[in-house]
Design a protein around this nucleic acid. Structure first.
Length: 274
DNA sequence: TCCTTATGTACAA
DNA sequence: TGTACCTAAGGAC
């Protein structure tokens, strides 16, 4: 269940296990069988992430485009010489790569498709700047935000505006900057946007390193605040995400939740100003 | 065993 | 705005 940090981490992990090797490619579940047959035995030459999109490049020519959606999961395993071989894939595995030392299973993705380079480029072209990519231009995002009457909460989730932010980073970064999620994009100042962007760059890089989302500042950690540690189900320590009706770590007020564009929004109405 | 929920997106109306 | 899609875990019975 991924935001951009998960996908960038996957790009690294696929590279570590398979780059420069020519893995066996299969689709036990069947939906990717034709492409798997074309690719199997080809060298994995590139792995790349842009926002929540993952690209695996084979023989400098063909790309697998993967998008995990809400349910997609990836599971890596090691195979050591003399050890038990990779376990047989279950019937929900859409894509398995396997070489002499490792295997990786992909389940439940929204997208797993073989695409050409122009098709890949078209995906990059429709995505906004990604805080995890060196080529990202934050002003490209701000140009859209500063002209929009849409709420900043919705804009942060719009992958054409900024790529890689999901429901957790959206809620948490707005809390960290004390911005009410319903504030219009056009009311976000350049200074505020620069701060939000810089924060996302830091938070998401840490997310890649740790493979989880932690957003609580050192002075607000459970230890610093003298409260019991609480790690959210998603695996990290957070201020507001999925903490509806619980007390705010800073003001003690009740965290609120609401539906916004079919997603759960979380915020502290006391700490975050309209 | 059934029901709900989820870090997402695309498309129809 | 609503719905379809894809999967697995956790909680209610």
């Amino acid at each position: 269940m991924p935001e951009g940090h998960t996908i960038h981490r996957l790009a690294q992990d696929y590279a570590t296990a398979f780059l420069g090797t020519s893995p066996h490619v299969t689709s036990p579940q069947g939906k990717f069988s034709d492409a798997a047959a074309l690719l199997t035995g080809s060298e994995l030459t590139h792995t790349e992430a842009h926002g929540k999109h993952l690209f695996l490049g084979f023989r400098d020519a063909d790309w697998i485009h993967i998008h995990l959606g809400l349910f997609g999961k990836v599971n890596f395993g090691k195979v050591n010489a003399g050890d038990a071989p990779a376990p047989p894939p279950t019937d929900t595995v859409r894509l398995r790569l396997a070489n002499s030392t490792a295997y990786v299973d992909l389940r439940g993705p929204t997208t797993c498709a073989l695409i050409t380079h122009p098709e890949k480029q078209a995906i990059h072209d429709r995505l906004g700047p990604d805080p995890l990519r060196a080529d990202a231009d934050p002003h490209q995002a701000y140009r859209r935000i500063s002209r929009s009457r849409t709420t900043i909460a919705a804009l942060l989730m719009d992958q054409k505006v900024i790529a890689g932010v999901g429901n957790v980073y959206r809620a948490e970064v707005l809390f960290r900057h004390r911005i009410d999620p319903y504030r219009a994009g056009k009311d976000i100042t350049p200074t505020q946007w620069d701060a939000i962007w810089a924060d996302l760059v830091d938070l998401m890089h840490e997310g890649v390193r740790n493979n989880r989302i932690d957003t609580v500042r050192p002075e607000h950690t459970p230890e610093a605040m003298g409260r019991p540690p609480r790690v959210d189900d998603h695996g990290g320590e957070v201020y507001v995400y999925r903490r509806a009706t619980l007390p705010c770590h800073i003001c003690g007020g009740e965290i609120r939740t609401a539906d916004l564009a079919a997603r759960n929004l979380f915020w502290c109405p006391n700490c975050q100003t309209p």
